[in-house]
């Protein structure tokens, strides 16, 4: 029963990883950028929500804060990331890495290094069941919202013009540029979409673990692993990868707590040896 409980805990953790990884994966796919600042944007949105909650309430903040983070993401894309598309991946990697440092430092300067709690509505905080294990409504809410937003994303990608262009751009950017799609605009939109996902993940995570300027750091590495395990270029892969490593580290926490973090890297290593392109990855993408 303990293992089951931990597996469920891991599933919730995995939902955070998956939300992060989906955003990262979007940006990696079309923009060709490993967004190191993803964790920073995530924390930024959480702090925006923290500031907004007294004025617009939790639900309003949940809606507005990711949009604000997306707006900051747009400015960043215009000023920095856009200049680096044609260059070696090294440069965008280093630029977003520097950006992560700047964001973290600014968050600490504005809101302080001390962690602050994010107020969530009371009814979400009620324990739903304490018979076998302790579940608050918030945890279920996180899972539900992660599922809904992912379905929403897949619907956008499947049915809207923007989504179809993003998918087309993922498979061949030059061709869609040749048929008249403004790929710079498209990549900006895609970047903002990815950042908004980071923002959503940030607010949800803050409701659970509280807010610190470094909160993104702990989630970004597992998200990288999720992408590698799931396969670069596949959003579904990132999603599944996130859930797998979440559950794996949850179960490990019950059996051998010291290896909670290390297990996900072991899984990645096994995956790379057994199936280098990842669960759902395409061969040779982004190489």
């Amino acid at each position: 029963m303990v293992i089951l409980f931990n597996a469920f805990n891991g599933l919730i953790q995995g939902a955070f990883y998956a939300l992060m990884a989906v955003g990262l994966s979007l940006i990696l796919g079309l923009n060709g950028v490993i967004n190191f600042a993803h964790g920073g944007f995530m924390a930024m949105a959480a702090y925006f929500a923290y500031t907004l909650i007294p004025y617009v309430g939790f639900w309003g903040a949940l809606l507005i804060a990711p949009i604000l983070a997306g707006a900051v993401g747009y400015v960043v894309e215009q000023l920095i990331v856009r200049r680096l598309y044609l260059r070696d991946p090294l440069y965008s990697l280093l630029a977003t890495f520097g950006l992560a440092l700047i964001i973290q430092d600014l968050l600490r300067t504005i809101w302080g290094a001390q962690g602050v709690p994010l107020t969530i509505p009371d009814f979400l905080n009620q324990p739903l069941s304490d018979v076998y294990f302790f579940i608050t409504g918030y945890r279920l809410f996180v899972v539900a919202l992660a599922i809904i937003s992912t379905i929403g994303l897949f619907a956008i990608l499947r049915f809207t013009r923007l989504g179809i262009r993003i998918r087309a751009g993922n498979s061949d950017l030059e061709t869609i540029a040749a048929v008249g799609v403004n790929i710079y605009l498209l990549r900006s939109a895609n970047f903002v979409l990815g950042i908004m996902f980071a923002g959503l993940a940030g607010i949800l995570a803050a409701g659970q673990i509280g807010l610190t300027p470094t909160m993104g750091d702990e989630l970004i590495m597992p998200s990288f692993v999720a992408i590698v395990v799931g396969g670069v270029g596949s959003l579904l892969g990132s999603l599944v990868g996130g859930l797998i490593i979440g559950v794996a580290s949850g179960v490990t926490a019950a059996v051998y707590p010291a290896a909670t973090e290390v297990i996900i890297y072991v899984i990645m290593g096994i995956m790379l040896v057994a199936r280098p392109r990842g669960l759902f990855g395409q061969e040779g993408l982004l190489e």
Partner: peptide
């Protein structure tokens, strides 16, 4: 080296972080 490009970077980061957590 089983992967190249951006993928290679992500794998090397992740391997590095493993030692950090150890």
């Amino acid at each position: 080296v089983r992967r190249r490009g951006i993928y290679f970077s992500m794998i090397t980061i992740a391997i590095g972080q493993m030692f950090y957590f150890i």
